[in-house]
Design a protein around this nucleic acid. Structure first.
Lengths: 261, 261
DNA sequence: GCACTTTTTTGACAAAATGTCAAAATTGAC
DNA sequence: GTCAATTTTGACATTTTGTCAAAAAAGTGC
């Protein structure tokens, strides 16, 4: 329902501007932190005035939300890439694919720290309150997609028999349990690592290792075969990490524009 | 080194004012959200001008940090109360005490939501950046105390034999692993619950239950005896929850002032 | 109680940021 | 080329933070 009328240059420019605003806003985070993302700075780089930007976004917070949606898209891209990479390795299990998503999350935090930061920022009440319903919905869809990616992986593990559903529960309940468990462990762990200033002083010198071990302990207990073996696990991590890092930058370069033409 | 000189009324007033500022700021969060905590509102309620408040705190962010330190203190109070309560119940294990801390965390989120909110808020870069080193250190000590409470509990479980240290690791490594694992699971899970708008739509209708189960799965796998049994676990939860809720309000009423006179 | 010094409080001020809107400028259509 | 519709502008109002010289209050010695 889009291209019935050939768009004029002006119309194309306007349609493209939302993307341009976001492309300009993101580097600002990197240069001066989140507080440097202000309408003045964006307008200056855009070579227009604030008023024009307000034609596209009702307020600053909606811009942040749009950036967050892009960030989640990149994160999903990284998760998918990890899963596909493991699938391409001979002899790797669904469990390996699941672990690779955890590694992808680590790479996300390390290589795309601005994306990680903005995902946190928009959760803040003071930001969330001001956002529009429409934008919130878009972000919700992105998040939901991300969960689906993991859930599908776990369902595949159940179907192929690696993960056995215990008596008294269902495949979907088990799936949800695991999705939420891994999500809490990895997200919670990475968040604690990034916001608790001196984790080492408190007695946790290697949070990444702890997160990985805890994920494996959880999966082992929930009945996922084959159980954790350090050798195979570590070799998978070593193989996939450099590819993930590269992919993180690829995903950043290629801007994830919405519609086609 | 404190009370060599009898303080004048004015000196006492000033010394007491820091507490007063915090006592006034906290209800503001409840009434109008975090954004309503501004210097004007505090000054109005204090019946003085902003300038006076700036004599006590160098900026707004330091006030938030001081509120967060109080919040962590209350949280520790709740955790300690939970542990002590379980200790007083006959036939309860260290594992029950550990689980009760998880319940205490749930009660904290539900009954002291402003405290939970402020603990999140101060993690935000835009807030953290502006805080003073001194205040950050105070908060770090509070956090460290909280971790100690849990770590001691786990060490006790190791000493009494409920928790066995596997070959190739140490008691302290295991302790750290468990502390960080439970922390990630519970904190991460509760955070996701509170910030992911429609968790139910995404397929996780009962996040609290999922968190509890995941904690138990993790502890089971890490070798904590006796293993999870629904009956004993649930009876403990039922017994302790009302007492925790009451304690949450007790801790709020009694303001945790710093020094004695 | 009085003159004085020190401390504390005040409120006017500057600065930074958001969001609005009537007027100006630009664009597109005939 | 004219005119209507759309878009952009920039001045304005508002809100908030943080500063600082001057005023007020408190303390001190006599």
């Amino acid at each position: 329902m889009s291209d019935t009328v050939p768009l004029t240059a002006k119309q194309r420019e306007i349609r493209h501007r939302e993307t341009r605003i976001l492309d300009i806003a993101r580097p600002l985070i990197h240069r001066g932190g989140l507080s440097s993302v202000n309408m003045d700075a964006i307008a200056r780089e855009m070579r227009c005035t604030r008023g024009t930007i307000y034609n596209h976004f009702p307020n600053k917070e909606d811009i942040l939300l749009a950036l967050a949606a892009r960030a989640v898209d990149r994160r999903i891209g990284l998760f998918r890439f990890a899963i596909d990479s493991v699938r391409a390795m001979p002899g790797r299990t669904h469990r390996d694919a699941c672990a690779s998503v955890g590694i992808a999350a680590e790479v996300y935090v390390d290589e795309l720290p601005d994306d990680f930061a903005i995902e946190q920022a928009i959760r803040h009440d003071s930001v969330w309150e001001k956002t529009s319903e429409g934008r919130r919905h878009i972000l919700g869809v992105c998040e939901s997609n991300c969960i689906s990616v993991i859930a599908e992986l776990i369902q595949a593990a159940i179907q192929c028999g690696d993960l056995r559903v215990a008596r008294g529960t269902t495949a979907s309940a088990l799936t949800q349990q695991i999705v939420f468990g891994l999500w809490s462990l990895v997200y919670g762990g990475l968040l604690i690592e990034s916001t608790s200033p001196s984790l080492a002083e408190v007695g946790i010198p290697h949070p990444r290792q702890a997160i990985r071990q805890n994920c494996n302990a959880l999966l082992d207990n929930l009945g996922w075969e084959p159980l954790y073996r350090a050798r195979t696990y570590n070799s998978m991590v070593k193989r996939i990490t450099p590819a993930l890092i590269e992919q993180a930058h690829v995903l950043t370069k290629a801007d994830p524009t919405g519609e086609s033409s």
